[in-house]
């Protein structure tokens, strides 16, 4: 199981990387490689050239920016997992990261690579979808921005511009108020591709009334999806409220059938996990001091 031959380039700058990608439409970015390299080994992907961005300082930073936290495309998942900025400002992403892969794959896998790959069961992609993160590309010298909803269009199919370079993903910072976030998934082995994954973030006001709630489901269909649970605003996130909101939100959810899990199972599991995520998010928000 050896990859087909390719050229390798380690550019010294983002500009050089972009030039290389623009010059050769068969070139591909090598970020963490934890998904790409198996595809190369099985010859399911055969790029002419790999452009290794892992050592680009400019892409390896986690920065607070005006409207959120910008995570460079080459930031490794293990670094993100240890990041205080992410832990405090993007609690939903912080909740999702421990579910990503195993320690050795998190050591090399990147946040940007996970997004760019567009796997419907990717935890980071789901967190980005729920939070409506901004996915930033450089292509043709221009910065292009995608919302997750636009970007993820099918299983490992994305709107990534040809010859473009994903540079960073900007996750919105937590809103003000008492915020709680939670992430859950189920698979037959803990670190496998999930059969269903869910994330939720809720905001409570001083007396415990929900002012905003976000929910999303991954792994069940072609892409991660954000679901509308705005009806929860104004409730106190009681059991009935959550059950009703989840039921309504999942009504039109498309689920796939495969060897490992049926569509009916995925739907049922997604509903259960969604409620669990909302409950846990609520409980965490309650713990925050008003």
């Amino acid at each position: 199981m050896k990859a087909a031959p390719f050229d390798y380039l380690r550019p010294g700058s983002v500009g050089e990387a972009c030039e290389a990608l623009a010059a050769d439409m068969e070139a591909r970015v090598l970020a963490g490689g934890q998904t790409l390299v198996p595809m190369l080994a099985m010859r399911l992907s055969r790029p002419s050239r790999l452009v290794d961005i892992t050592r680009l300082e400019e892409l390896s930073r986690i920065d607070r920016v005006e409207d959120g936290v910008a995570i460079g495309a080459a930031v490794r998942q293990c670094i993100a997992l240890r990041s205080d900025i992410i832990a405090s400002d993007v609690p939903l992403l912080a909740a999702a990261l421990p579910h990503v892969g195993h320690p050795p794959t998190r050591a090399r896998g990147t946040v940007g690579g996970s997004i760019a790959h567009g796997d419907p069961s990717a935890e980071i992609a789901l967190a980005a979808t729920i939070l409506d993160a901004r996915i930033m590309f450089l292509a043709d010298g221009e910065e292009e921005e995608f919302s997750p909803e636009e970007f993820f269009i099918g299983p490992t199919v994305t709107m990534a511009p040809l010859g473009g370079l994903l540079t960073r993903v900007v996750f919105p910072s937590r809103p003000s108020g008492r915020v709680g976030a939670a992430f859950h998934e189920i698979a037959s082995r803990r670190s496998d591709y999930a059969f269903a994954s869910t994330g939720a973030q809720v905001v409570l006001d001083g007396d415990g009334t929900c002012t905003d709630a976000l929910l999303g489901v991954g792994s069940v269909g072609d892409t991660p999806v954000a679901l509308d649970v705005s009806a929860l605003a104004g409730t106190r996130l009681g059991e009935e409220d959550i059950r009703g909101a989840v039921e309504a939100a999942l009504e039109d959810l498309d689920c796939v059938d495969d060897l490992h899990a049926t569509a009916t199972y995925r739907r049922r599991a997604a509903a259960q996990l969604a409620a669990q995520s909302l409950r846990n998010a609520r409980d965490r928000a309650v713990e925050e001091t008003a």
Binding site: I186, F195, A261, T264, Y265, R266, A269
Partner: peptide, 11 residues
């Protein structure tokens, strides 16, 4: 015995 088989059977 897959998880889905158990869950689907219960349902």
């Amino acid at each position: 015995i897959r998880m889905a088989a158990i869950s689907d059977a219960i349902a």
